[in-house]
Amino acid sequence: MSRTVLAAALLFVSPVGLVAQSDEPARATQDPQAAYNELVRSFAKAVEAWQDELQAALKKQEEGGPRVPRKAYRPPTKSFIATAQEHAQELAGRDEAVMFLGFILKNASSERNAIKWAVKTLNSDHADSAAIADVVDYLPMAATKGAGRNATKLLGRIAEQHGDAEVRAKALLARAAFKTERGDSSGAIADLKAVQSVSKDEDLLAEAKDLLAEVQKFAIGAVAPEIEGVDTDGVAFKLSDYRGKVVLLDFWGFW
């Protein structure tokens, strides 16, 4: 995020967030930021309660109590995702909807339809907006949580076509991190080099530089980093002991 956008966002958040404590659901159209703060606050509270409950149940199970049912492992996302969706619909077409759509991408668990809808809406209504910068980091998550190619396509659209160079850079960095996770190091390297030629933001450039160094260490063409470890019998040895031989390094287990 550029400094000016960040400063503007902070100005907007600070007084309102503390006031929105009432139990009345905030009206998104009147005060989107207050409604958003309220949603985030109540969701955090519900997650905390769920975690405490799950931990207590697991402890009881360990002590011989009843088996924890599968549904107890599911985070309490459903009603909050529904609320986010309602707010986003109330704000349809306005860029304040983006934060609610981002909330869905970030927090939805099994609500695949909501994720798909959020990605579609971001793509049709907000892809060229400044606000989209705040949600690019969640698009890879959305891709793995059900939106699939539509999420990666949107990320690509922002990375390549957004009017603001810094937004493009942010999307490129998010896409590089995603490609790294997927083992596509050459793709990640290309995106990270693009960040370096597009962005002037120091934080973003530093992040890109770190990730680039990390990816290049394990990319094809690099000298394999040394492994100094112990074998399964506990005898110490090193990967470089095998110089002169071709090594097929296999991360494996019987399990």
Partner: peptide
């Protein structure tokens, strides 16, 4: 898993 790396005699990932 499994993940495979093919490393040549000079230690380069190929």
């Amino acid at each position: 898993w499994p993940t495979l790396y093919y490393i040549d005699h000079e230690g380069v990932i190929r």
